[in-house]
Design a protein around this nucleic acid. Structure first.
Length: 574
RNA sequence: GGCCCGUUGGUCAAGCGGCUAAGACACCGCCCUUUCACGGCGGAAACAGGAGUUCGAUUCUCCUACGGGUCACCA
């Protein structure tokens, strides 16, 4: 068989040579140890957690080593392409801090190793296809889909392995005349790889995540070029990652089974094999069993899900880091304020198996992340989220930013910051009582206290405030301790024990403790039983912000008093 | 069915021939505390099973079981 002639017959228009391409795409001039990697998404759907897991891994590997990360769009299957998918992918990843040094962009591409869309690289693949044919390493196959199905059926009946190999590889050694005849008939053909492998042989391989592996050699003559002349993933992977000078391939471990083919391909093409990192896929619980997260079945796989829920970007990022690198949490505890980029990411620390996605853990990480933010950062985060998902709340936040920030600053900073929310959507209920528009009070008195008694406490407190106003022209003590001292004094005058410990020893001697009085105030002012520190709350309500101008908390006392059946108009009189 | 990968508490996970088998989340109890949210202390909870190698196996080898992945002109 004259392979050279065959290659001319199949690719008459291809005149470029591998050598010329080598020159056009020279090895990159990068420091020793710099990692060059890529993301190769197919534009077939939404951005999901898997993309992010793989993306973060590649990104860290590259940028931590002073290397290059690029984006290559693997759009070799036009049938499945979804319009706009590339753009949403790029934006989604950028949102999570994954930025590409080169490759496809929203409005084109940048970099010297393009084109970065596989659909525009046909001329390049054909150069290598022609070379393989001329060397007898690839051949045309004219089987129709029906014939292929028939082969599969025969294999099944004979209990043999599936695939196009050995005696089932019917076009593998056809004479030139047959090929010419088929071509003359105008039959469609694909280009197949002539595998020299045998399933009797094992190959040793070391994956950077999974460690040493023993795989069975590939003996199947896989398709390299589809009948439309566009390559399959396998062929494109070999050609592209070689010409784009990829040093490390990061991909899901569902690719492991085709690794033997890829190894053969690189070898047949005379390319140096890159390093591989096969990342375990994220699992989820489905009833009683685990399974791979599926794009179709699991909405929580989409990154947009976390956005809607209101998980801050760094929360999701750090959660994924805890899954990816088992020592990340320890590092974070030791370096609570360091930027995530300072963490030394290591493929050796990656779990070789797939992890179960755990939203409880995500929530915990997120609370931690938010607790480390400043009030201003929290404000910006909530506002951003609310603008999109709760415009009414966004309007409230924007009406008086300083007021909102002051509220969010309660209990923030210091050694033991509050951890009230994991997602932005929880902020609104948390701070709702600060806004008249959102205030939905429940004036049920504290345990064991009658409405009359509670109203009585409110009246006493109200009067204490009025007196303070007359004497000092202020409604609120300058500091929290002093404030609580006054609450205790008031409590005692009403027959409540000022000291909680004392009260516990002899509860029968008192109506209750200062805590009960404080709780009555809390319920009146916040309309609920839980709130952050009362003095901090009052401090904000006593401010001069337009949102609380006037006697804001005094008004709250009166309103509660009225709701409890008191005649509040007499509160002002002697 | 073939091939491959995996299997430590409910979940995530340290461990790399000798340990009372870390830690985190969730759960439970106690403490702190004027409520809540934190924080502190403590508890329950695991090496899938069986052979072998070894003085000694969670750790190495083999077998079985289970889980997952993959067997397209999809990536």
């Amino acid at each position: 068989m004259d392979y050279k002639a065959l290659s001319e017959l199949l690719f008459p228009d291809v005149t470029n040579t591998p050598e010329a391409l080598e020159e056009q795409y020279p090895p990159r001039d990068l420091p020793e140890g710099a990692v060059v990697s890529r993301m190769g998404p197919s534009p077939t759907g939404f951005v999901h957690l898997g993309n992010l897991v793989q993306g973060i891994t590649s990104e860290r590997m590259c940028h931590q080593s002073g290397g290059t990360l690029f984006l290559r769009v693997e759009d070799t299957d036009s049938k499945r392409e979804v319009p706009g998918a590339i753009e949403s992918l790029i934006r989604g990843l950028a949102h999570y801090g994954i930025n590409f040094d080169e490759g496809a962009t929203v409005d084109g591409e940048k970099g010297a190793y393009g084109p970065y869309k596989q659909s525009r690289r046909a001329h390049i693949y054909h150069v290598y296809a022609k070379k393989l044919v001329s060397e007898g390493k690839a051949y045309p196959c004219f089987c129709t889909e029906e014939e292929l199905q028939e082969i599969h059926a025969r294999e099944e009946a004979a209990k043999e392995n599936f695939g196009y190999y050995g005696k089932y590889a019917v076009w593998r050694d056809r004479p030139m005349e047959d090929i010419k005849a088929a071509l003359a008939e105008g039959k469609e053909w694909v280009l197949r790889f002539r595998s020299e492998g045998s399933i009797e042989h094992k190959i040793k391989f070391t994956d950077l995540i999974k460690g040493p592996l023993e795989l069975t050699e590939n003996d199947i003559d896989h398709v390299l070029l589809k009948s439309d002349g566009i390559p399959t993933y396998h062929f494109a992977h070999a050609v592209d990652d070689h010409l784009m000078r990829t040093t490390h391939v990061v991909r899901g471990d569902e690719w492991l089974p085709s690794l033997p083919l890829h190894i053969q391909l690189f070898s047949a093409l005379g390319f140096r094999l890159p390093k591989y990192l096969h990342v375990g896929t994220l699992q989820k619980m489905d009833g009683a069993s685990k399974r791979k997260l599926s794009k179709r079945k699991d909405p929580e796989l989409a990154l947009s899900f976390y956005r809607e829920q209101g998980y801050p970007v760094p929360s999701v990022y750090e959660y994924i880091m805890t899954i990816l690198n088992s020592n990340f949490e320890d590092w974070r505890r030791a370096n609570p304020t360091a930027p995530v980029g300072d963490f030394k990411f290591s493929p050796k620390k990656m779990n070789p198996a797939g992890s179960l996605f755990d939203e409880d853990k995500l929530r915990d990480v997120s609370k931690e992340v938010i607790s480390r933010m400043t009030a201003a950062e929290v404000y910006d985060g909530v506002l951003d989220w609310a603008k999109e998902y709760d415009p009414d709340f966004a309007a409230l936040l924007e009406r008086s930013p300083d007021y909102a920030r002051a509220i969010l600053a309660i209990g923030r900073g210091g050694k033991k910051p509050r951890k009230d929310f994991a997602v932005w959507s929880e902020v609104k209920p948390y701070m709702s009582f600060f806004y008249e528009e959102l205030f939905e009070p429940d004036y049920t008195p504290p345990e064991g206290m009658t409405p009359e008694e509670m109203a009585n406490i409110l009246r006493a407190y109200y009067r204490q405030r009025m007196q303070m106003w007359h004497e000092k022209h202020t409604m609120l003590e300058p500091d929290g301790n002093e404030w609580f001292e006054n609450v205790k004094a008031l409590a005692e005058s009403l027959g409540y024990c000022p000291d909680t410990k004392l009260y516990r020893q002899e509860p029968e001697k008192w109506k209750g403790s200062a805590g009960d009085v404080s709780m009555a105030l809390r319920i009146a002012i916040c309309g609920r039983r839980q709130s952050p520190d009362m003095y901090s709350v009052l401090k904000i309500m006593d401010g001069d912000d337009p949102d609380v101008s006037g006697d804001f908390f005094m008004g709250r006392l009166e309103r509660a008093g009225a709701a409890l059946g008191a005649n509040t108009s007499e509160w002002n009189s002697k």
